[in-house]
Amino acid sequence: MNTTQQRSGLVTTALLAPAGVFFFFLLILPLIVIIVYSFGERAPAGGYSPAFTFDNYLNLPARGKAILNTLTLAPLATLLTAVAAYPIAYFLAVKVDPRWRLALLVLVMAPFWTSQLLRYYAWILILGSKGIPSWLALIGIPDLRIINTPYAVLIGAVYGFLPLMVPPIYVSLEKLDKRLLEASADLGATPWRSFMQVTLPMSLPGVATGSMLVFILLMGDYILPQFLGGGKVFFIGNALVDLFLQSRNWPFGAALSLSLCAIMFVAIFLYMRFVLRQSNLRQEAVV
């Protein structure tokens, strides 16, 4: 008995070892380094010099604009993406002939086949002064600036992250038991009320998954704001690029990135709790 237990313990260890090593060297260790750096000082020529000071944290308001932008635009863009993705996912999962579903789903993902940079360049052209604003000027709406404003960042985010948002919502709608909708109709609910009372709450886990994915990616993004925000609308990610690569103030960068992690952690925690409570859904419930 004892030896089999020992052996199964060994097997478990052996199976977990690669992941453990991976996590230790690529996650825990760098995190420790960052934490240590964040209490240090900038070396005169840039980089890190050992010290123990809270100055970097106290200095965070200096990057308040980036933090504020990230904290408003990332959630807003996530919300807009979810709102845009839901009807698409609904259409694919419910209305479309099952034979065409896969093909259409692949089409939704198609933008991923081209380079991200290329797509952002395209948006610069579309949203720039020779793009949509010039057409709008033709029908009498002059002087509209989109590029390098928060709107451009939002549009780019919805466009760029839609392919990530659609599949999880699609899956949750696809596996929704159609008999529940019949039961709802049978009990007198109009189609709209059935949607609000059955379909929507039961697909919230999919919305939550997709939102989480998009939110996390947006929070750390710096390419999107750089291209479509044009240096005017910048995120924490842009500040980090600047701190680590340009001004080479590593300790301050470390403090800022740890703050980003903390914010994300709290936001995700609150969001998950909210969604789970809203939908009241648990694993066992999905029969």
Binding site: D177, A183, T190, P191, P201, S279, L281
Partner: peptide, 17 residues
């Protein structure tokens, strides 16, 4: 939804949420 009849489904179809 406008018929005055109700149904008990084979697998009950209770709303899990």
């Amino acid at each position: 939804y406008r018929r005055p009849v109700n149904m008990v489904f084979q697998h009950y179809a209770l709303f899990p949420h």
